[in-house]
Simulated scan of single mutants.
Amino acid sequence: MKKVLVVDDHALVRKGLISLLTLEEDLESVGEAYDIETGLRMIENEKPDIVLVDLRLGKESGLDLIKRAKSMQIECEFIILTSSAQPSDLQKAKEIASGFVLKEALPEELLYAIRLVANKRKYYDPGLLEIMMTVGNKDEMELINDLTPKEVEVLKELGMGHSNKEIARKLFITENTVKKHVSQILDKLDFTDRTQAALFANIKGIAQFRVS
């Protein structure tokens, strides 16, 4: 069972999240906090597996809580909850958090994110991806043009949800070659995992490209 702590400055939000967690057999709510100091104490005492953190904790930032927790070498994963965010916030959060979920997300989406992050994977709410995909100072076509034709083919297949084995079979290349292409794609687009690349391919229409 995975232990989850909720850190949010709105009591109704905290209570709603805790009520949701109590309905799940594989998740356990270990408490709630409304600010950074209380949150850090509870993280240290309860040792949760996952912490749901509001991006805005009153006049404080949930990012500061995560940074301080990591400096204390506390072993847990963080999912940021937000109703809106600036690109700069998301870029900073991308480096230290394992997921982002919009507060208006459906309950099943949040639960899916929690379980995904619990398995050491990342989750990004589709509603935030348009903001997140403004990578660096390049526009989207510059990013795509950095890829080789074969990398565009592989990216298209990622966007269609295909595995390395399926991509290798479809493009008549080895799985090792697919892995190399995926690694290059992630490096060029500055993504941390193939899920981001797949979502990028769909948002930018790459999954619908005709590749000659």
Rank of each mutant, 00 (worst) to 15 (best):
L102H: 08
I167S: 01
D187S: 15
M72Y: 12
R210Q: 15
L55E: 07
S71E: 15
A33N: 06
T22S: 14
K179S: 12
K138G: 01
L5M: 08
L63H: 00
L128R: 01
T134D: 14
H10S: 05
A197T: 07
I50A: 01
K59Q: 12
S163A: 05
S19Q: 13
G99H: 02
V178C: 05
A207R: 04
R41S: 15
L57G: 03
P149N: 11
A85R: 02
G205A: 00
K59T: 11
K70E: 13
D146R: 11
Y123W: 13
L106C: 07
A201W: 04
K165L: 11
Y34W: 11
L143C: 01
N145R: 14
K179L: 08
V178I: 06
E60K: 05
L5G: 04
K67R: 15
L171S: 01
A11L: 13
V154Q: 06
L106Y: 15
Q91E: 15
L143K: 08
R169E: 14
K170G: 02
N176G: 12
E151Q: 15
L128Q: 04
A168G: 02
Y112G: 03
E46G: 01
F200W: 11
K204R: 10
P107R: 06
K138T: 08
H181L: 09
I173Q: 04
E153I: 08
